[in-house]
């Protein structure tokens, strides 16, 4: 459904954020995108909806090539991609309801949106979504009055009211406590399942990713170096993605009989990543973080 093909992003400074990323996201699949800071995770999902312009390569959503679209057509396609942010990115001085309805801006003309005359159908949907994420009592609160977890729920409702085909989720839990993090991840994954949504979730917390997603993609220095099932990740794969460290406490160790999965992992990643695992270059990693 979403396909990235040879996606490259080189910043004007010369930093190669993405080096030919190829990734296929089937309908309804939730992907956890892991990798060290600076590996290009945020750049990757922003290149999909072109908040950042990719340098070359192609992105196709449901058969539509996004990278060459003119602004108007791009805006129409952006409606199909809901985005959820690390710092929630709610408009702080607007109410919860206004924030949720801002997800409808792509469907509503300027004057209707300016005078807050959104279609009744959108308002009904907003109430349904706020009820679903558990904030129906907060409709009239201003966004800056909410707690972190509540704000992220508003962010989720705003993304969903776009009626998207895919969610692009950028570090949804990085600003939240462990319990709220789990609740938010569970909510996102449940909603994706209910609505048959695909999602790409950038996430720092490897253990959390392993609990909730079905497929994990590891990004290092702009390249995909791992692509496989959560329980096929080993200390070796984490070392490859993040660099050398004692990983024994981090990963939910695959059971002994899952050996085959572990062996499978490199083969699955082979399409996108070099077979040979290079030595960890500490200087390079230091520069990335």
């Amino acid at each position: 459904m979403l396909r990235l093909d040879g996606l490259v992003k080189t910043y004007p400074t010369g930093d190669k954020a993405l080096k030919s990323v190829t990734l296929e996201v089937p309908r309804g699949q939730v992907i956890g995108l892991i990798g060290p800071s600076g590996a290009g995770k945020s750049t990757l999902i922003r290149c999909i909806n072109r908040l950042i312009e990719p340098s070359s390569g192609s992105v196709t959503l449901e058969g539509v090539e996004l990278t060459t679209l003119r602004p108007r057509a791009l805006r129409a396609q952006r409606r199909r991609m809901g985005m959820i942010f690390q710092e929630y990115a709610l408009v702080e001085r607007l109410s919860v309801m206004e924030n949720v309805l801002s997800g409808q801006l792509g469907y509503v003309g300027f004057w209707r949106s300016y005078f807050r005359k959104f279609p009744q159908a959108a308002i009904d949907e907003a109430f349904r979504l706020l009820d679903r994420v558990g904030l129906v009592d907060m409709v009239d609160k201003r966004a800056d009055e909410l707690s972190g977890g509540q704000r992220q729920r508003v962010g989720i409702a705003r993304a969903l009211i776009q009626n998207p085909a895919i969610l692009l989720v950028d570090e949804p839990t990085a600003s939240l406590d462990p319990k709220t993090s789990r609740q938010i991840m569970r909510l996102i994954c449940e909603l994706c399942e209910e609505r048959g949504l695909a999602a790409i979730i950038n996430i720092h917390d490897v253990a959390l990713a392993q609990i909730f997603v079905r497929r994990i993609v590891g990004l290092r220095a702009g390249e995909i170096v791992f692509d496989g099932l959560p329980n096929s990740m080993t200390a070796a794969t984490l070392t490859e993605i993040y660099g050398e460290e004692d990983w024994s406490a981090t990963i939910r160790e695959a059971d002994g009989d899952d050996d085959t999965d572990i062996d499978d992992a490199p083969r699955r990643a082979a399409g996108a990543a070099p077979q040979h695992i290079p030595e960890i270059d500490r200087d390079r990693l230091a520069g990335l973080t």
């Binding site: 909806n49 908040l51 805006r75 129409a76 396609q77 952006r78 409606r79 991609m81 809901g82 985005m83 942010f85 710092e87 990115a89 709610l90 408009v91 702080e92 001085r93 607007l94 206004e98 801002s102 997800g103 409808q104 801006l105 792509g106 469907y107 300027f110 949106s113 300016y114 962010g155 705003r158 776009q162 692009l168």
Partner: peptide, 29 residues
């Protein structure tokens, strides 16, 4: 805060809608 602007852009809002929803509330005070 550019994040709020980015979030409104990501919804598929037009340029002027981005100003009205993403920027104006932030500069009102």
């Amino acid at each position: 805060d550019q994040n709020q602007v980015e979030a409104i852009e990501a919804t598929g809002a037009s340029r002027i809608q981005v100003i009205a929803f993403g920027i104006v509330p932030q500069i009102m005070p």
